[in-house]
Design a protein around this nucleic acid. Structure first.
Length: 112
DNA sequence: ACCTTGACATTGG
DNA sequence: GCCAATGCCAAGG
């Protein structure tokens, strides 16, 4: 598995319960600016045992990126609600749940 | 090596 | 708000 995937997985694992991040934000924090699509692939291929909070990653509009109708779309919605994330229609209320990583978390993510 | 495919983001209409 | 065009780039055929 590529080094990129490991960095992406590490960042996703840092997203706190009740918070959400966009694919692009995760890519940036992983040191891969402009590679949001790589994040989606990394999540789809993430090994189960990593137990990542993949449900906390949404598109830049705050919407669930999995196509409605796929079983995991409903699962993601349910997981987010169960951890207190609120929705405004189909979008998560980003003014309330957007993840703002603290400086120490940033340094950890960036390997400082 | 050459397409095609995305759980994306941004911009412009 | 919705849609289309672009840029992006690793994976899989």
């Amino acid at each position: 598995m590529s080094e990129h995937y490991h960095r992406i997985w590490k960042v996703v694992g840092l997203i706190p319960e009740g918070c959400v991040a966009s694919y692009g934000q995760v890519a940036d924090l992983a040191g891969l600016p402009g590679r949001a699509r790589l994040v989606s692939r990394a999540l789809k291929q993430a090994p189960e045992h990593l137990d990542l909070p993949w449900q906390r990653v949404l598109n830049s509009q705050g919407r669930i990126a999995i196509p409605a109708g796929e079983p995991s779309h409903a699962l993601q919605l349910s997981l987010l609600r169960s951890e207190g994330v609120t929705f405004r229609g189909k979008r998560v209320d980003l003014t309330q749940h957007a993840w703002s990583p603290s400086l120490d978390v940033l340094m950890f993510a960036l390997d400082f």
